[in-house]
């Protein structure tokens, strides 16, 4: 009787302990990545290769999503602003929403589901097929050879993707606001230019995306490395990457926003 009552608590306890263990492991893992990053710099082609897989292959989804998000912002922004007679401010609205929040956050979410999950699956499969063991036995540290280049590739790719997302969004907003609805193109840009500050908006947005890139890639490589080396284990790890990344991005966004703006 008492046992059945206690079971949920025991399970909760196990879950908490496991969560703390993983937090400890991911911190140690992060340190290990930083300490084993020298090779990523001396053999930069390893990083370039991963930038190709993480960054270049994400271009299409970023361009298309950015364009659509900008178009939606343009449409929704217009219908709201026009009620207050300030439809001219559309450019500022679109640009500020994208630069400060939507660009970094949505690009990071897309990056997590496109590249983060791929990284987890790749490293998880390398673990399941003993490729990481093989590397270890060949006296090659898998963290230096496999994990660190992916981590830095993610950190470097993310701001580029976020910047591209912003540009595509602003162009999408321009298309809807100016070309479809017929607002004045000049005021779209001038309102934007009058209200966007390079440091406060553009640079802070880029800094955000740098943090997001580091967080998403760290989670992705960690989940791959920590995955149970079976097909089911890898697929569970891939799911965890996407879910954890999404939560961490949003939480981190709140913290960074509170610090920056």
């Amino acid at each position: 009787m008492l046992d059945t009552l206690l079971t949920p608590f025991i399970r909760l306890g196990h879950w908490v302990i496991e969560a703390i263990r993983r937090l400890g492991f991911i911190s140690r893992f992060f340190l290990a990545i930083l300490m084993n990053s020298a090779q990523s710099l001396t053999r930069f082609h390893l990083v370039i290769r991963e930038i190709y897989f993480a960054g270049v292959l994400s271009l299409i989804i970023i361009i298309v999503s950015g364009l659509f998000v900008g178009m939606v912002l343009g449409l929704q922004g217009y219908t709201t602003l026009v009620r207050f007679g300030s439809a001219d401010a559309l450019g500022a609205l679109v640009a500020l929403s994208l630069l400060r929040e939507l660009g970094p956050v949505l690009a990071a979410l897309l990056f997590a589901s496109r590249s983060g999950s791929a990284m987890t699956a790749e490293i998880g499969l390398m673990k399941a097929t003993e490729q990481l063991d093989a590397m270890n036995v060949m006296a090659v540290n898998p963290i230096a050879r496999v994990v660190a280049p992916r981590f830095w590739a993610g950190v470097l790719s993310m701001p580029v993707l976020a910047a591209l997302f912003n540009v595509m969004g602003i162009l999408g907003g321009y298309y809807v606001g100016v070309i479809l609805i017929g607002l004045d193109g000049g005021s779209y840009w001038s309102q934007m230019q009058a209200n966007v500050d390079l440091h406060v908006d553009v640079v802070n947005g880029m800094i955000k995306s740098l943090f997001f890139g580091a967080a998403v890639t760290l989670i992705a490589v960690f989940e791959g490395f920590d995955a149970t080396p079976t097909a089911a284990g890898v697929s569970a790890a891939t799911t965890r990457t996407v879910v954890t990344s999404a939560l961490v991005i949003l939480a981190l966004d709140f913290v960074l926003t509170a610090f920056m703006f």
Binding site: L125, M126, T129, E130, Q131, D133, A134, V137, M138
Partner: peptide, 10 residues
């Protein structure tokens, strides 16, 4: 070391 299924880098 030769691994069970080779463990070639895919």
């Amino acid at each position: 070391m030769l691994f069970q299924f080779g463990a070639l880098f895919t």
